[in-house]
Nucleic acid binder design. Sequence first.
DNA 1: ACCTGAACACCGTTCAAGT
DNA 2: ACCTGAACACCGTTCAAGT
Lengths: 181, 181
Amino acid sequence: MAGSTRDAIVDAATALLDEGGPAAVTLREVGRRAGVSHNAPYKHFADKETLLAAVAARELHAYAALLTTDSEGGIAAALTAYLNQALSHPARFRLVFGPWTSDDARLGDAADTARDALLDAVTASQRTGELPAGDPIALAELLRATSHGAIELALGGHLAKNGSTTTPADLVSRLLALLAP
Amino acid sequence: MAGSTRDAIVDAATALLDEGGPAAVTLREVGRRAGVSHNAPYKHFADKETLLAAVAARELHAYAALLTTDSEGGIAAALTAYLNQALSHPARFRLVFGPWTSDDARLGDAADTARDALLDAVTASQRTGELPAGDPIALAELLRATSHGAIELALGGHLAKNGSTTTPADLVSRLLALLAP
DNA sequence: ACCTGAACACCGTTCAAGT
DNA sequence: ACCTGAACACCGTTCAAGT
């Protein structure tokens, strides 16, 4: 079972992150859950940050897969899948797009894969007329910015305040309506 | 000098946050810089999180002030000021809109003040015709979501990649152009 | 009311040693 | 090649005591 311990470590770290945020991810508890000693992770990852980078990379690949699968339903379906994944795994979302001191190569590659998947969904939707012509990169960046901001505001409780019942999906829908040719 | 020690503590925490991110804000270093012992902060704040909440509340008031002052130049000027403040103090931005386990009352009030200031800028711009009629709250939320997402992507290095030179200001400008009546 | 110094529990990381 | 147990430095927090 090559990499079985490594996988168990990443699984444990992801579960702890989901349960209690970054503060709950201690190498001691990770080791305990993975059935190894508290410093066995150092045989697989340089340090805690590199372990978290592996968790983030895995999540970025999940985003890429979602965007690819659901882009057949157009950009609206792809973005809906993106929002759902982010909102149901908030700690992972914040980890992925939070501050990274070291630039792990795997993490950068995973980020590129997710970005490319969104770009493909945008160009496909331009062909079907769901989105207007023009630079697809700029279009993808605008869609992503609004989606991320909506997610962040929702996670922080800054949305749906003072009688407002706005959801991230509402904000993205409105942007798509503005963009529609 | 009532509150002088307290101010020195908040100042030191803010400076450490700017210099090295949240990890650099240790109560021991805060105390050292403020000229007090490493646990004097506990006489002014319940714990580290409450101290950081004070830093965040202060920054939120700065956002509110910027939005109020520059809203005379219309929503474009107000949002430009917002982007500039966020991009020049990235760690504070992430602290303010990051995950909060406790809901400090001061922090909630400060967030409301900033949100109201943006809302005022929006309604003013609706009067001058810079923004279309319609629910100003929904409009403010859309503008804020796009601004926040653009800031987050820029801070994470996900913008201006692969030959793209997009800035947060570009994305917000594009949204404003789409919204213009 | 505000502050200090010692102490405690916990965590990331390193090291010598085992298989 | 992978893992363990002891050890070190550092941090948040608490406590008894001082002014």
